[in-house]
C-alpha cells in the first residue's frame, strides 16, 4: 500500500514538473494560430503612478482586440478604478462590451505587521482565485505593485492545469531605475510573464530577458 502511494506520488510529481517546465518554455513564445478576434483582458491597476502608467499604455492599445476588459484594483484604492472609468468613458458598473471594474483584497497594506498579513494574504489569494475563475482572461496586463502577484500565480497554475492559457505582460514601473521591484523580480525569476518590460536601458542590461523599448511616461 505504502509503495503504491509512493509510486503514485513520484509519477504525479514527475508529470507536474514536466508540465511546469513545458508551460515555462512555452511562455514568452508568440501565438502562432490565434482563433479569437478578441482577447478578454484583465488589467491589474496598482495605484497612483502605476495606474497612470497603465492608462498611458492602454490609451495606445486597440480596444476592440483587447475586449472585454476587466479592471482590478486594491479594495483600499478608490482612485484607480475611477481613473479607469474615466478612461473607458463608463460611469456604471458595466460597459456595453462587457468591460467591468472590480476590487480585490490586498495581501498586505503598507505598515501592516507580518503576523496579521498571513491571514490577509490567504484572504487575498482566495479572493483572487474567485475572480480568476470567473474571468479566466486570455491576456493579463500588470505593472505592480504586489496586487498582481496572486493574480499572476493563479494564472500560472491555471496554465499548468490546462484551465486557461493566459498571456501575461508586466511593465516595470518607471520609478525602478536600478533594480526590479520585488514583484518584477518574482515574475522575472519564475518566468511567469510572457514579456517583461523595463523603462530604463540600464535595467535591461541587468535583466537580459526583459524588454526595453522606451518609457511610458
Amino acid at each position: 500500500m505504502v509503495e503504491f502511494v509512493l509510486i503514485f506520488l513520484v509519477i504525479t510529481t514527475t508529470l507536474l514538473v514536466v508540465r511546469v517546465v513545458y508551460v515555462i518554455s512555452q511562455s514568452s513564445k508568440p501565438i502562432r494560430n490565434r482563433s479569437q478576434k478578441h482577447l478578454s483582458t484583465l488589467v491589474v491597476l496598482g495605484s497612483g503612478g502605476h495606474t497612470a502608467e497603465m492608462i498611458n499604455l492602454l490609451s495606445v492599445m486597440q480596444k476592440d482586440w483587447f475586449a472585454p476588459r476587466y479592471y482590478i484594483a486594491a479594495a483600499t484604492d478608490n482612485m484607480s478604478l475611477q481613473k479607469a472609468r474615466v478612461f473607458e468613458g463608463i460611469l456604471d458598473y458595466k460597459g456595453a462590451d462587457g468591460t467591468q471594474f472590480m476590487q480585490i483584497y490586498r495581501s498586505r497594506e503598507v505598515g501592516q505587521s507580518y503576523i496579521t498579513s498571513v491571514g490577509t494574504t490567504l484572504l487575498a489569494l482566495g479572493h483572487a482565485l474567485w475572480l480568476m475563475v470567473k474571468i479566466r482572461p486570455h491576456v493579463i496586463l500588470c505593472n505592480g505593485p504586489g496586487t498582481c502577484i496572486p493574480i499572476c500565480a493563479i494564472a500560472f497554475i491555471f496554465k499548468v492545469l490546462g484551465i486557461r492559457w493566459s498571456y501575461i505582460f508586466y511593465v516595470e514601473s518607471i520609478a525602478r531605475v536600478k533594480r526590479l521591484s520585488l514583484t518584477g523580480l518574482l515574475l522575472y525569476k519564475l518566468h511567469m510573464a510572457d514579456q517583461l518590460f523595463v523603462q530604463w536601458p540600464q535595467l535591461q542590461k541587468q535583466y537580459p530577458r526583459a524588454h526595453y523599448v522606451g518609457r511610458l511616461m
Partner: peptide, 15 residues
C-alpha cells in the same frame, strides 16, 4: 515617453 513600442511588441506577441 511613448507607449506605442510596448503596445506593438504585445500585439506582435499575440499575433
Amino acid at each position: 515617453g511613448d507607449a506605442n513600442p510596448v503596445a506593438k511588441l504585445i500585439n506582435k506577441h499575440l499575433g
